[in-house]
Design a protein around this nucleic acid. Structure first.
Ligand SMILES: [Mn+2]
Ligand SMILES: [Mn+2]
Ligand SMILES: [Mn+2]
Ligand SMILES: [Mn+2]
Lengths: 217, 217
DNA sequence: TACTATTTTTAGACTTATCTAAATTTATTT
DNA sequence: AAATAAATTTAGATAAGTCTAAAAATAGTA
């Protein structure tokens, strides 16, 4: 069995390496996990021993097939628990992440599969993130950050690429939810901020926010 | 915040000290937690520092008010999760204990209270064990071990005082569930075993089993 | 290319929780 | 009461995971 620390490292490497499964720097992992680079080096050596990562001194780390499988499985659990908390226990979408960080480490395959069934095999979590199935396959989704939408075009909010509470609460304040219809009215060259209509109402949004809202046209 | 190990020690002391809140020996704790007496001594010192137990060298350990509160709170979580697993996720009663051992350490008071609400404030877990409410109060229950029932008397099964899978599976085989009606037909002096009628059907039960079935008349 | 800055690794230390073996205390027998 | 047995504590060691400080490697710049 893998320890909690090992699982968190694998998840961090998975998150940082993205779809292209790129190699990840020691520092990037340290920042992601709020730890020190020296601690990361130590742990990577252990994960290499276990066959979960490929590692060459001074040259970054990437997941092996085995490491990738573990990471995806933890992501699956994290997102299923988030769905449970919102849909069944009436949590708000900005309250679930930290609890899911704990629940994702519970070890029982029966629990995960029964939870999935109980929830009706959801494909997306409360932040619009795709939930891999039990074979580790993600639903295909075609979304783009709001910032990439051109003037005049419309889209539907299908996700967010951050789940920290202050960002999510701000979206609540702007009345932006999954499913909200957004049209880009104007783009300000100076600071990349944009003027949008949300469900008919005009609002001004910074580029930082627009980068983290995912749109489907 | 308390560590997982600390919580498990407090729970073990709570379990072993019973209603009278008796003092518990170092060895008893070691046996309960499948660890060594020397490890127990170390941890008890730490728990003493934290004000969770009263401890005098060579004289056993008992919970302080604070330690008692923490232990009861963990028991509450354990039993609520067991209810969730059986009632919502269709687990069998002999499959829930080990998963609940993990889930009981999840830290989020909102989670516990919402779970309690979601389950409809259950008073007993799938093994008939009482669930303390959020103030740590247990529902009053008047049950006695089946072995104490005298010949001719009837009762209803309201609980079991063990939750290891092999015992529970054996009860399933005997068709003994919570709610089953049991009447004592005969008591065998030689080995304390008993002849009973369960929902009308005659069966022979060892004293070891009869000790662990809780009856309400 | 040589100097400097940044990144990464190593060395050594610390904490938590555990263990074995030995010492000490308490309990039980003769 | 003395001897023996059992329970408990202490001493010292180990593994996991982390840290700081220093060394080594790589990248960036003059
Ligand atoms: Mn999350
Ligand atoms: Mn999410
Ligand atoms: Mn249990
Ligand atoms: Mn139970």
């Amino acid at each position: 069995m893998n320890t909690l620390a090992e699982e968190n490292y694998l998840k961090a490497i998975f998150k940082l390496s993205g779809k292209q499964k790129a190699s990840v720097s020691t520092n990037a992992i340290a920042v992601e996990l709020e730890t020190k680079a020296s601690s990361v080096t130590d742990m990577i050596k252990k994960l290499t021993e276990k066959g979960f990562v490929n590692y060459q001194k001074y040259n970054g780390t990437s997941l092996t097939k085995k490491g990738h499988e573990i990471a995806v499985h933890i992501v699956r659990k994290h997102r299923l628990w988030e769905v449970f908390l919102v849909k069944k226990l009436n949590f708000q979408w900005d309250e679930v992440h930290d609890v899911a960080e704990q629940l994702e480490h519970i070890k029982s395959s029966k629990l995960v599969e029964h939870l999935d069934t109980f929830l009706g095999f959801p494909q997306y979590d409360p932040h619009g993130d795709p939930i891999p199935n039990k074979n580790g396959e993600f639903p295909k989704s075609f979304s783009a950050p709001l910032i990439d939408l051109t003037i005049g075009n419309k889209g539907k909010v299908v996700g967010v690429s951050q789940d920290n509470p202050s960002f999510l609460k701000y979206l609540d304040k702007l009345e932006i939810q999954l499913g909200s219809k957004i049209q880009v009215i104007e783009k300000v060259d100076f600071d990349q901020s944009i003027e949008v209509k949300i469900n008919g109402k005009a609002t001004h949004i910074s580029s930082e926010v627009a980068k983290n809202i995912l749109i489907k046209q």
